[in-house]
């Protein structure tokens, strides 16, 4: 059956790139939401742009101006986001509801704004932040979590379904 052979080929290819897709999801998640965060920063919705990722190192490197700094931060965020995506895949990847993904994003926000805050010299404690900054960053983190988490769990479950269907088709043919 040439038909089924073709289909199997496609699927092997699909599985092979699964990790690559997770990396891409992380990369683009960082890019898209980091960029929207930058726009929010430009509009003064929040005090912190994507440059927050570079905050621990600001004492080491001096940037020419704020735009360069923000874009370097965006770049760092994209790289960091790849690791976050893999982390999500290993810990929560099999959970199918999207609310878990949103909760994951909010948990990330708590991690950054409460737990990591002492190590980020530029970041004020949450009690001193204005409500615009808090809501905007919280929403961005929630959407980022939704984007990364939902994409990864959808990707994994799509793979599972494909395998199931393939097995079914195989058992039918034999």
């Amino acid at each position: 059956m040439s038909d089924s052979q073709d289909l199997e080929q496609n699927k092997q290819e699909y599985q092979y790139t699964s990790n690559g897709r997770v990396a891409l999801i992380g990369l683009f998640g960082g890019l898209i939401w980091g960029f929207i965060g930058y726009i929010a920063y430009l509009l003064n919705f929040t005090k912190y742009g994507p440059a927050l990722t570079l905050d621990p190192f600001t004492s080491l490197v001096q940037f020419k101006n704020d735009v360069v700094k923000q874009f370097m931060g965006l770049f760092a965020l994209m790289i960091l986001s790849i690791f976050i995506a893999f982390g999500y895949k290993w810990i929560l990847g099999r959970v199918k509801t999207m609310w878990i993904s949103i909760a994951f994003g909010i948990a990330l926000w708590v991690l950054v704004f409460y737990v990591l805050q002492p190590w980020l010299p530029g970041l004020e404690p949450v009690t001193k932040l204005d409500k615009n900054t808090i809501t905007t960053t919280l929403c961005l983190y929630a959407l980022y979590g939704l984007f990364v988490g939902y994409s990864i769990s959808f990707d994994l479950s799509a793979n599972d379904n494909d395998q199931d269907e393939k097995e079914k088709a195989d058992s039918k043919q034999t």
């Binding site: 897709r21 891409l24 683009f28 919705f45 809501t135 939704l146 984007f147 939902y150 994409s151 769990s153």
Partner: peptide, 30 residues
């Protein structure tokens, strides 16, 4: 900000005939 966020979450939650409404953005398919 919260309105826009809820708007995106709401659209991402919509599934008709097993198809996520915001595909390929959320879930992301490069």
């Amino acid at each position: 900000v919260i309105g826009s966020t809820l708007f995106i979450i709401f659209l991402a939650r919509v599934k008709n005939l097993n198809t996520p409404y915001l595909w390929p953005f959320i879930p992301f398919d490069p």
